[in-house]
Amino acid sequence: MTTLVSPPQGMSAEVAAAAGRNVVRPGILPSPGARQWVSACPVTALVPGRGIAVLLPGGAQAALFLLPNGMIYAVDNLDPYARAAVLSRGLTGDRGGEPTVASPLLKQVFSLRTGAALDDPEVALPTYAVRIQHGTVRVGLPLP
């Protein structure tokens, strides 16, 4: 079964302005399979360039980022190096074009697209699919 990403719907002028771009869209396409979609927040609650933490059912946490180009990414909020839930508070940017977040504690840099730690091939963060429906950002969790 293949799930296609629904194109952004109900995009208000306010939502688009929040991102500084006309289009806000998920940075990670969901892999095939049904999943549970957790409402995170209105797109307008996101500050372009910054992240925010989302509490997921079961106690996990996602770090949700809106980049200035309108892409939204979600990776796990737990910093595997520092073992603390802090990544949503890291600085975003890019390395050679790859969108990144740097841990606010010891500055390890992770790809927002794949979750991979860019200086350590053995470490990667889990990533989450994101969708935007009627101006609300939702984070996709695999069904148990």
């Binding site: 106690g59 989450y128 695999p142």
Partner: peptide, 26 residues
């Protein structure tokens, strides 16, 4: 809920999380 402290010793100290298990990418 991941923030925890240990107050059993001579001073309050933060307790870090166990190693996070890597989950299948959603």
């Amino acid at each position: 809920p991941t923030v925890a402290f240990d107050e059993s010793g001579p001073r309050k100290v933060p307790v870090l999380l166990g190693l996070p298990t890597v989950r299948e990418n959603a």
